[in-house]
Write a protein that binds this DNA or RNA. Structure first.
Lengths: 343, 343
DNA sequence: AATTAGCACTCAAAAGTGAAGAGTGCTATT
DNA sequence: AATAGCACTCTTCACTTTTGAGTGCTAATT
């Protein structure tokens, strides 16, 4: 019973497109005026009754026009996605591709820039979730002497991200000694994910306590701490265009969104959920993601760097957003990000 | 004519306190019920007329109670500040001081933690502005070889903050060569502020082009870029409790606040303005800071690290916030921050 | 002279009323 | 099968009425 004949499809799309453009319930007469379907308003009404029976549109009240349901939007978006895959989304505007040329920036800055572009372009809220610790590969550990008993520990990851922290030492060590310790640790841990490093350091420590010098054991423990604090702490989700929220969200929704984004647990869960399927995804009525966000939608895509550490970037806006334009934009942006971070 | 006799003071404070607690216009009868002033509502009305003439309170309309004006709030807050200076704000809750023990955290994390504490404690929006580039002192420059033609440049500042960036090099250099270059630059720039370094590098470059090797000149130019990008980029203002906004701000105000905070220029200006006077400051009706934020207030305090690089931390809430509780809280937090960052 | 009780008055907010208009569903017609 | 015609429904908007809180003034009281 969910099949739609050509006429129903056309009328459904006309309703949704009109609703996106004008944000009002759409009546049968309205459709006859805006589209040349060669049908009278009465015929359109008949079709509308059927579309309503099938659950694609609904009626706020007797004398109102029709509004698309979530099911209606999903149909519309699926139709779009199929189309877009064919056309390859190549006609993304020059403006966008010009903005997405990142030169000489940190990785985190690149992601910030991409999010900012998305928010400017969509006038909605852009969010970016950085890669999970579990998938970050360690490239190099380095200790820099800083004061008598203080050193800066630097953990560089394969994708160029850097964690650093000032650590305190029991004794006074020379830079040479610190280098030696770093070399030792590099030899053992290079190429592992941070999570693996964290686990391995614990095992290693027992082994080393007897064989190696105290310094290495101390430094290893400190590195472990750094990785831990990184994992625990809010993974610094990137937000851009928060001030746009007031243009499309209610007070209640703004609160829900801001609360969710401040909640690192939630963001991690979301990222996990996203990683299950690739490419650009659309959540219509994000209540499966954030409860109580019925009239909002999310267009989001995962991005990767060379070594498959994946984050996500996308936008949150009203369900009646311009998917036709914005799905390719998010898609293109995520791909541009992947390209830069891998190169 | 601005002098207030004892009765007027008492009634003004009663009005303000009631308005803070109940958020409604306060009538004369209301005051007689909530406070034992030994006066009838008629007498209170008479005093109210005088307070209104003096501009401390106002009348939304004929049949409404009185609401404090900005002038009224300022009087009230000044009275509080005098009181609090005497009592020294020592009775800040144990809960707060327990939360403000920061152990083993990065400086930026410490500031984040403090902001979070403020937002949790006040249920308003907490903001923190990190120290200005102009006042950050350079402690050490270090280059770490990263790939064939890539190195990580690390700029450590006197207060322990670290900027880093991956830089690309024309030729292949050994770690030793990089160390040599770093030593040279350290000798020249250590102890200067980043702004000074930025300026000096330009002069130095001409000088060095002839005398020194190419590597040093290149690296110096790159350092300059790092400092520039740091200055230009949003100084990563710390926000906490954004979701509280919906509880006290209107849509319009939320938009204004979020826009202001996303605007780095604005935040710098604000920080400059704050630095002019020390200690905890209260802006009643922050329209001198953010236009169109009439009914909001800001309690904010500057903090410092050892070498006088100053940032600011505070809260934004409704003008009718509980100053009695929150002024000491902000004050205490900023002082705790100063203590940690200086130690 | 200061305070207070009494009371008419004002005005915002809430509740009620009626007309207008948009859009429907049904039916008879083409 | 498609459509014109029409009665019907229900929101929206402008308008009026009612209510009640709180005032300002005046006359009485201490």
């Amino acid at each position: 019973m969910d099949a739609l004949d050509e006429r129903r499809k056309k009328i459904l799309c006309a309703i949704i497109q009109s609703h996106i453009d004008f944000n009002i319930p759409i009546g049968s007469f309205f459709i006859t005026q805006k589209f040349s379907l060669g049908l009278s308003s009465a015929s359109i009404r008949n079709t509308m009754v059927k579309l309503e029976e099938q659950g694609y549109i609904m009626h706020p009240h007797t004398s109102a026009g029709r509004v698309p349901t979530e099911k209606g939007y999903r149909f519309y978006i699926n139709a779009l996605l199929e189309e877009k895959i064919l056309s390859g989304g190549t006609e993304v505007s020059q403006e966008l591709s010009a903005r997405l040329i990142f030169t000489g920036k940190d990785n985190i800055r690149v992601v910030e820039e991409a999010a900012k572009t998305l928010s400017l372009y969509s006038h909605y809220l852009a969010i970016a979730i950085p890669p999970k610790t579990e998938s970050i590969l360690l490239k190099r550990i380095k200790f820099i002497k800083y004061e008598e008993r203080k050193a800066l520990a630097v953990l560089i990851s394969e994708d160029g991200a850097v964690n650093n922290k000032i650590i305190e030492l029991d004794k006074i060590y020379s830079q040479k000694q610190l280098d030696k310790a770093a070399n030792y640790l590099n030899a053992r841990f290079k190429g592992l994910t941070l999570t693996e490093v964290r686990g391995k350091i614990t095992d290693q420590l027992y082994e080393d306590k007897t064989t190696c010098d105290q310094l290495i054991a101390d430094l290893a423990a400190l590195c472990r701490e750094i990785i831990f604090s990184e994992t625990d702490d809010l993974a610094l989700n990137v937000l851009s265009g928060a001030s746009n929220l007031t243009d499309f969200a209610t007070m209640r929704q703004i609160k829900e969104i801001l609360t969710a984004i401040e909640d690192k647990q939630f963001m991690l869960k979301l990222l996990n959920q996203l990683s299950n399927s690739l490419g650009t995804q659309v959540f219509v009525g994000v209540e499966n993601v954030i409860p109580a966000l019925k009239e909002l939608s999310m267009v989001i895509s995962t991005y990767n760097n060379r070594k498959y550490a994946g984050g996500a970037i996308g936008i949150i806006g009203p369900t009646r957003m311009n998917y036709k334009k914005l799905i390719p934009v998010v898609d293109y942006t995520a791909k541009a990000l992947t390209k830069v971070l891998s190169g």
